[in-house]
Amino acid sequence: MSATADDRPGFELPLLLLAGFRTLIDELHAELARQGHPHIRPAHGFALQAIGPHGASATEVGRRLGVSKQAAGKTIDRLAELGYAERADDPADGRRKLVRLTPRGMDALGRSAVIFDELRSRWAATLGTGRLADLEDALRTVTGPAGLRVDTVSWFTS
């Protein structure tokens, strides 16, 4: 017998939401590894999003991630070692360095988008398309227009 909403302890809700998030991210990374990206980690995905398709300075990446410029620099260094990002002169300002995604970084982001669509389809098959749409709509209602920000990772460690 299923518990009513009033019988369920409040602490379970954030844990269930986190478990759903973790399940999707773990499945994403397992598939990315199978598709040629075995070294990319969840934090790298947030950093790739923070860099974006047009690039960003290390300061901007840090601000978007909610971490110091130094912490962002370490992540950028790792992404560069793995071939996902590179530092280059900013064509608009020769004094500034720009972090850009490499073709490998763009490939990882593109594959991630496709994999997320496939994972969503699996959830729809399990839950039903209506229930999944209701879940997404309900989460949008309670999270507001901002939704998930890429600085969420730093929030866990702050």
Rank of each mutant, 00 (worst) to 15 (best):
L139W: 14
K69C: 00
D89A: 12
L139S: 07
S68Y: 03
V142K: 02
L148S: 10
Y84C: 02
L109N: 09
G147E: 03
A72N: 08
K74P: 00
A92D: 14
R149I: 03
A92R: 14
S121N: 08
P91S: 03
G94D: 07
R104S: 14
G110A: 06
G144E: 08
A124P: 04
T143N: 03
V67E: 04
R140S: 06
L82T: 04
I76H: 05
V99P: 06
G130A: 09
V142W: 10
S112A: 15
R78N: 07
L127P: 05
A85N: 07
R140W: 01
D137S: 12
R100H: 13
D77N: 13
I115T: 05
P91N: 08
L82H: 10
M106Y: 02
A133C: 00
L109M: 14
R96D: 00
R87W: 15
R140P: 00
V114L: 07
L82C: 09
T141S: 11
T143K: 00
T102Q: 12
V114T: 12
A133P: 03
D117K: 08
D117N: 08
P91D: 04
R87N: 05
T126L: 10
E81R: 13
G110D: 08
L148R: 09
A72E: 05
D134K: 10
R95V: 05
R78E: 15
L98R: 13
A133G: 06
L101V: 01
D77I: 03
G130M: 05
E118Q: 14
L139Y: 11
A71C: 02
G73K: 04
P145E: 10
L101F: 03
D93I: 03
V67K: 09
G147H: 06
D93H: 10
D107A: 15
G110W: 00
A125H: 11
T143Y: 02
Y84T: 06
S112W: 00
G130R: 15
R111A: 06
L135Y: 14
L82W: 04
A113L: 12
V99R: 04
D93Q: 04
A71H: 12
E86M: 12
A108K: 08
A108P: 04
D93K: 06
W123P: 02
G110M: 00
R120T: 14
L139Q: 08
R100W: 11
A125T: 14
E118R: 14
F116N: 04
D77Q: 12
D107T: 03
T143I: 00
L132K: 05
D117A: 09
T126G: 01
T143H: 02
G130T: 15
D107Y: 01
R122G: 14
R96P: 00
